[in-house]
Simulated scan of single mutants.
Amino acid sequence: MNRMMFRNALAFTLALVACNSIAASFDCSKAANFAESSICNDGYLSGVDSILARSYQKALAETEHPDELRQSQREWLSVRDQCTTQKCLDQTLGARVTFLDSYSRVEKSKAYAAEEKLRKDEYEAQRQAEDLANSQRDQQYRIAQEQFRQQKQQSAQPHQVAQTQSQSVQPAPSSQSPANVVSAQQVRPAQPVAGKPAVLRMWQAFWAGPAWKYTLLIGSLITCLAIWRHHTEAATIYTDYTDAAITNALPAIGAVAALILRWLEMPGLVSGIALGTGIILAIAYAVFATFRTNQGALSITLVIVAKLTLITVFYALIGMLIASLFSNSARRKGESQARAAARNSREKKQTMALITGLSVAYTAFTAWVCRRPEFTSLSECLEFDTAPA
């Protein structure tokens, strides 16, 4: 039974192929005109006719409009049969093979474009579904937060009512006269409210306005002037590598010590003291080394300002870059969670590369500023000598 069904299916398939293919090849014994007889008698034209038949079958298999291609093939056969010379047949067959090959490529490109569009549509639909799910989760989270806040307020209201009732039940002392009560009420609002310290207010005003920009500009100009005087040997910024290393490493040591103390869950005041100690020691050593290797108030002032400007700008940039590593930027509009994570990872890698490049550039610049390209002992750097190196 299965063998019979297989034979019937095979016969049906062969019949379908025979019906769907209007090939250029034919039975030479039934040649009815000059074109067919010439193709049968000429080996070259017969080979071209076989190639044409394969090209037609390939185009028919790849097209989405087989009826149109069959009609086109019938029309071409009528044109071919009108040829009366072998040259005409050669040109007609060659042109048809070229047309069918181009037709196959075009149909294949259309199929690929349709498949690519379908794949993009599926991806876009999936992305929109993810965005919709994310927005729904965010909305549910906000609703849960609002419900929790309302429940917290409702639970706090009975306690406030009971406290108010207990306060209203307490009788007022009979020993106080109305005048004393009025004076007490007038004095209570007049109590001063503790404000921010003056130093903190000045610091906030400094960063809120353009003052820090002018300070940075003036410091940069003074630094350039100090470097110029350094290379004319009128002043000395850094004596050697040891001098530069001590000046620039003390703030980093203080910051590392503060982080270690914070990791050990020490009070914040202890971490602040460690950081402040490193900064104060760096400033003190910069002033000490400047007085040790320079003479004259102008040179000393220029060098101290240059050192503090270079160190402050470098560590401020490094600190901002490190802080950006621990802050994830919010998702942009229409951006999926996977793309946002990939973008954050890429931005962190770029920030790490920027930190490394900035550190290497600052180290090379500091080495270039040193008077002597060598390391000396710590005792030599701490030895006070008023004569410039």
Rank of each mutant, 00 (worst) to 15 (best):
Y241L: 14
Y241T: 07
T242C: 06
T242Q: 03
T242Y: 01
A245T: 12
T247C: 02
N248H: 11
L250K: 07
P251Y: 01
A252N: 05
A252W: 14
A255C: 13
V256I: 14
A257I: 10
A257Y: 13
A258C: 08
L261R: 07
R262T: 11
R262S: 14
W263L: 14
L264K: 11
M266H: 13
P267F: 07
V270C: 13
V270G: 12
I273C: 14
I273N: 06
A274V: 11
G276H: 12
L281M: 13
I283F: 07
V287S: 12
F288H: 12
R292G: 10
T293K: 01
N294Y: 03
A297F: 01
A297C: 00
L298T: 02
T301Q: 07
T301M: 05
L302W: 07
L302D: 12
I304K: 08
V305N: 15
V305Q: 13
V305F: 11
V305Y: 03
A306E: 12
A306F: 03
K307N: 15
T309K: 13
F314M: 05
F314T: 06
L321C: 01
I322R: 02
I322K: 03
A323Y: 00
F326P: 01
F326R: 01
S327M: 09
S329P: 08
A330H: 04
R331G: 09
S336N: 08
